[in-house]
Amino acid sequence: MQIEVLQDGGANELHLALRGELDALTAPKLYEQLTQLVQGKPGISQITLHCRELTYLSSAGAGILLMCMDNFAPKGITLGLTEVQPEVYNILDLLGLTKLMSVTHA
């Protein structure tokens, strides 16, 4: 999976594009990078993951999203997913994550 930091975010926002598959192998990489970015940009309040090119989400990937959400919430950071493909959206919806975080269709 590729993670690209997008430059179109505001001062308090962080935008990342995810490409490929978010599974047990790649999920720790996402967590590590998100944690580093949050530490390197104090005052951030919104992280948006652009998932147009995210083709697969495994349970481990969903677990990492939940962990990020749980870790960032006390710091006042909201995690959201946008442009999510139907297959990935179905998985998020099945797991009930669409009710915990902002998830929008592609």
Binding site: A62, G63, L66, D70, L95, G96, L97, K99, L100
Partner: peptide
């Protein structure tokens, strides 16, 4: 029915 995975978030949610 509406639901969510268990063990990640508080029982209130």
């Amino acid at each position: 029915p509406s639901g969510i995975v268990l063990g990640t978030t508080s029982s209130q949610i």
